[in-house]
Structure formats: structure tokens, C-alpha cells
Design a protein around this nucleic acid. Structure first.
Lengths: 342, 342
DNA sequence: GAATTTTATGCAATCGATTGCAAACCCTTG
DNA sequence: CAAGGGTTTGCAATCGATTGCATAAAATTC
């Protein structure tokens, strides 16, 4: 350990004084400007090291009129009651946080339910960030479109909609819904229910995949088998109980999330409906708990962690002025032995 | 909608010009300074409203030499492999985020595994925040102590240790471990295992509660029944398989988290050990999935969301210069019918 | 050695707020 | 009406960096 210096070197000025140069030179030296001689650079770097000087990012960002903050907004739909405690969100958040950290950006989390994203314009999320990542489109496609035209870099996790002018990162939801449904059909199941709210583009696409699979097997969807199950477990349970007691009798269920599927599994068993004998269940997301349900859950995996990284790369791309296009990731059916009879 | 003004009012100076006063007066008016007459205040407020002016927090914070940021560090122990995807973390994060937002603070998330918290001193977490919340003490009691003496406001979620000089918020871990164990003992179970790593104060306290309960029933702990199960599901499974195959034969298990308990449940069943007939399992945390395992999980509930809020109030209290003491929240056993025979 | 080019450094304005102190204003009152 | 007191307001420095432009120093050429 080097001897402690007389007084802390807190600002660039302190450092410059110590080196006998001006603040300007110190700044340029540390930023590796070509205007500065190698000798001076070396000297200043060494001095900075020795005295533990590190730049005041707040001051720098202030001067450069930027924030080094990316806001992340979880579009929790109040009606469908998806919680931020859905492990899906955390996986994604993890990917985002990792990638932002690598690029030296901060993460500002907004998690309150947002009834209208345009309201964000007056708040910190928009004004005090360099860009925003929205997780989910909700039913606010129009508003997102308007926000995007406001000049703030925006990227949305969801599904491309005709006429959008914001950047989308998403997974192949049609394919996911299709694979899940076909898997059930291949087991000779013919009364396949669809659990979940489809009033946002992402979920609508999965439903489209569901219809496509049914079509290939020459089936028509039974509207009674499509119900709007909330994402929250306790409320999901209530709805599913109502569904079963109303006499519905599916032999397969495609769910919009694993949490929902786990609730379904548990509720069916509670009601004496055997899984997978009477009804097979397929989930979505492949959260880590999926493998540990009983029975373990067959589900559609999206690479959420990677998705988080791509979201970040996309906003940063826009900030840098690049021409950023949409990204659609593959979905993959993960078959586990028991939630669907093999 | 009022007609758009000629040019955007972006800075205080713009607003002051518009009102025909100086920047200083505008600043004081918006901050409700007693130096300013009511008439001037009203005028400036109205003008600010009308032209959609809102203060530049970055500039203000810069001037006031503060950041309005509280950092949250999850002390993920590499060895025990607890993930941030443990729902426990998200619940707590939710409480923290809510409360910070109410106080107009930002949240900076640090989630990488931290091998030595003192390393944080050079990073943004410490330098660019007004205070830090640590979730968990890990094995770094000493380092936390040193950090706390560095003058940065710090609050730790964990369990009070003798000689600490940082503020702790935690729950009654001794009581939690005690209740869980006693519950099993009351069902005439006598070979009760303890799953999880106890090398941090929080978990050690739970183990102490476990020992206390055994003692009250005149039992001694069997060291073979205490094993170091990782928090991560897949790894937990491996360890539990090893445990059972080595001939261990507990009739009850106290786990350090629900995720671990769910892994235990599933692994036992996979191995043909019946739950709760052969072995009863108690978890910790009462995550929302706990009620939906099969069988549903008996567990110790901590009010995590509230804990998050208290953590925030505590750091802010320290920042304001208050005299902040520790907080210990109650733990409550939640008995569900099946993971332990009633 | 003087003139010219190249390279390295410094001066000072700037970003948008806050605040101590001085100055201007408005009332009373003698 | 001038002096004295209380109320409002403005001036200008400040926080810690970046950067265009001017200038100084060094290197090159004649």
C-alpha cells in the first residue's frame, strides 16, 4: 500500500494541480485524447491510480447532457395481474442488468402498473434516462408508437405489429403456441383449452399458433375452451375452478406462462382431475421451477437471459445512432415426461 | 390543451426570463422558499405548469452534491449458489423499489456475486450513491463493519452480530427455525434434518432455533442430518440425492428456503420417498409458489415486502442524520395441510 | 538564425441548478 | 420628508467535468 497522500484527490483540478498541468490537459489525458503527448498521459494515469482518483460521472454526464441510465418498464397489465414476482421477469432483468453493467450504464426500474405509457413523458423514466426498454406491449401499441416518435430511444419486448415504428425484440410466439398445441394433438388429445388473455400482440400470436396447429389436424377451436386466466396464482386458481365446475372438460391445456401452468396443475389435482391422464398441461417460459413441479412441466422455452442482452444492445444501438432492426428469437418446446403423458 | 409555447422552456433561466425575474428568484419560488412573496410564487408555479417545465434533477443533485440514488446489493454467495431468480429476492426488491419511488430516490441494482464488499468502494455502487442496502451478510461481517465506518450510510438485511456497527434489519430467525422444528417434533418426528449452509449469521440463527427446539424435546442434533444444500434447484437435487443414497433417513426436514424445500419435495418423490408419510418438509419465505407445490408447502413466512420498505426507511433515516436502530420483524409459521402431515 | 509548420498545452465558456450576501423596494413612524 | 425596519429580489460564485479556440513550445525547413 502506498502511503496515503496528504489530502484526497477528489476532482480533476486536484489531479491537475498535482501534476502541474491544467484541468483541460488532465481531462484529455485521462480520455486518451490524441492531442496529448504520451508522456503526459502516462504521468496523469499513474497519478490518478496512485491517489485513487476516479472521475465524477455525475459531473461528466451533466456536462455531456446525458444520463448513462436506461429505464426498464415492466408493462404489468392490471387485468391479467401478472406480477413482477413472476420468475420470468427476473430472468430477463438479470440479462438486462448484466449487459447494461458491461456497457457502464445504470438501470432505473419502473415497475408500477402503467395505465398509459404516455404519462411517463413527464416523469423520470423518460426525462432522466437515455433510453427505455419496455417489457411487454400490453394493449398500448399506439401509445408506444407515439412515444417512439418523440425522439427517445425505445425498445420493446413483444411481437411486431403492423404499422409500428418502434424497435421490437421478441420470440417466435406463433411457433411457440404452435409447437405446444401440436405436441398435445400428437398425443391424440382433441379438446385443447387455451388459458390466458390474448389482448396483446405477443399472446395473440401464441393463440394464432394454437389455431394453426388445430387447423392442421382438421379441427376448429371451441370458443368455450379459451378462457382469460390471470397470471397471478391465487386468482388463476379461482378462475380455473370456475372453468372446471362449469362443466368444461378439456384433455389438454396450453398456458401463457409457467406460473399459470403450475397453478393449473395444482388446481386440477385439487379438483380430482388427474394430470396427465385426464388432462395434459403445457406451460410457457421454462422457469427453473418448471422442472420441479409434480409432475414436471412440459413448456416452451424462450432464452430470456439472452433476450435481455439483446434488448440492451438494441437501445444502445439506437442511442449511437445506428439503424436497429427487430430481433425474433427462436422458441423451443421442452418436453418433460409427465405433465403431458409421453 | 393550451397552445404550444413558442419555444420549449427547458431551464430555470428560460422560466425566469418568461416571468421577468432572475434565476435565483425562480429557483426559490419553485422550492417554496419563505424569502419569496406569495404572488411571485403563484406566478412562477403557474408558468412552470403551463409550459411543462420540470426541474433537471441531474443538475440539482450535482449542485447539492448528492445523487438521489440508493444502491441495492444482493449478496449472492457463490458457494451456496442462491440465484437472484429466487422469488424471495424479487419480493424484497419490490418493497424496496416502491418505497424508494415514494421518496423520489432511484434504485441502482448490483447483482453480481461480490467476493469482497470492500471492492465496491471504488465502484459506482458506493461512490455514486447516497446509501447502500445489502441483502444478506454473507460471510462478510467484518468488511461490512469497515464499510460502515467509512461514512457511507449502509443498512443490511440479515441478523445482528456481536460487535457490528452497521444497521441491521432482519426477521426473527431463531424463532423461525424454532417454530419450524417444533412443528415437526409435535408430529412425533424425531429424526429431523437441517438443509442449508449456516455460515452466515442469518442462517446460523435459524439453526440455533432448530437446536433449541430439539433441546426442548430432550433431543440432541445428529450431525449427519445437517447438510449443506445449495439454494439452486438443480444443484440442490444432486446433493439431496447423494444424501438419501448415503443411507440418511430423516422423517422431517427444515429447509433454509422455499425453493430448496420445493427441490427437496420433488427429489424425495422422485426417489420414492413419500411426502409427508415418510418425511415431512418445512420451507422458509412463503413464496407464492409455496402454496402450489404438491403437496403444498408448510413454511415460515417473513413479511418481505414490508422488510424492503423498512430497509429503505432506515437508510434514508441515516442519510437525514437520524439515530437509526436495528429492526427485527416477526416470523410466522404457515401450516399447509400436506407437506407435513397435519 | 529567422520563418514556418507541427505538436502540446492552457484559457475560459458551458451544462442547470442553489445560495450567501448585497442591494432595492415598500412601509411605518418620528 | 428622512430615517429605520422589514420584505423581496438579484448578483455572482459554485459543483466537476468537456471542448473550441488561442497560444506556447518544439521541430522542421530554408
Amino acid at each position: 500500500m502506498p502511503r496515503k497522500s496528504q489530502k484526497a484527490v477528489k476532482s480533476l483540478q486536484d489531479l491537475a494541480d498535482l501534476a502541474g498541468v491544467s484541468r483541460a490537459t488532465a481531462s484529455r489525458a485521462l480520455n486518451d485524447s490524441p492531442m496529448i503527448s504520451t508522456r503526459t498521459k502516462k504521468k496523469l494515469r499513474a497519478l490518478a491510480d496512485k491517489h485513487g482518483y476516479s472521475i465524477n460521472r455525475q459531473a461528466r454526464d451533466f456536462r455531456l447532457r446525458r444520463t448513462s441510465v436506461i429505464a426498464v418498464v415492466f408493462m404489468l397489465d392490471i387485468k391479467s395481474e401478472q406480477h413482477m414476482s413472476d420468475p420470468f421477469f427476473l430472468d430477463m432483468l438479470g440479462g438486462i442488468a448484466d449487459c447494461l453493467a458491461e456497457h457502464d450504464y445504470d438501470l432505473l426500474l419502473a415497475h408500477a402498473p402503467i395505465s398509459n405509457v404516455l404519462d411517463l413523458r413527464d416523469g423520470r423514466v423518460i426525462r432522466q434516462s437515455d433510453g427505455v426498454i419496455f417489457i411487454g406491449q400490453g394493449e398500448q401499441h399506439e401509445q408506444l408508437n407515439e412515444l417512439a416518435t418523440g425522439g427517445k430511444p425505445i425498445v420493446v419486448w413483444g411481437y411486431p405489429v403492423a404499422g409500428k415504428n418502434y424497435v421490437v425484440v421478441g420470440s417466435d410466439n406463433v411457433g411457440g403456441g404452435y409447437q405446444a398445441t401440436r405436441h398435445l394433438l400428437q398425443q391424440q388429445r382433441r379438446n385443447i383449452a387455451f388459458f390466458g388473455n390474448t389482448n396483446n400482440p405477443e399472446n395473440a400470436a401464441r393463440h394464432q399458433g394454437y389455431l394453426k396447429a388445430l387447423g392442421e389436424f382438421g379441427l376448429e377451436a371451441d370458443p368455450k375452451l379459451k378462457i382469460d386466466v390471470p397470471f397471478e396464482m391465487h386468482r388463476a386458481r379461482e378462475v380455473i375452478i370456475g372453468f372446471v365446475e362449469s362443466g368444461a372438460n378439456p384433455d389438454g391445456v396450453v398456458c401463457l406462462s409457467d406460473v399459470m401452468a403450475l397453478a393449473a396443475l395444482s388446481t386440477f389435482q385439487e379438483l380430482g382431475v388427474r394430470v396427465p391422464d385426464d388432462v395434459a398441461v403445457v406451460g410457457y417460459d421454462d422457469i427453473s421451477l418448471a422442472a420441479y413441479g409434480s409432475p414436471p412441466l412440459t413448456t416452451v422455452r424462450q432464452n430470456i437471459h439472452q433476450a435481455g442482452r439483446i434488448l440492451v444492445e438494441s437501445v444502445l444501438g439506437i442511442i449511437r445512432g445506428g439503424d436497429v432492426g427487430d430481433t425474433i428469437l427462436a422458441s423451443e418446446l421442452v418436453v418433460r415426461k409427465s405433465s403431458c403423458a409421453s
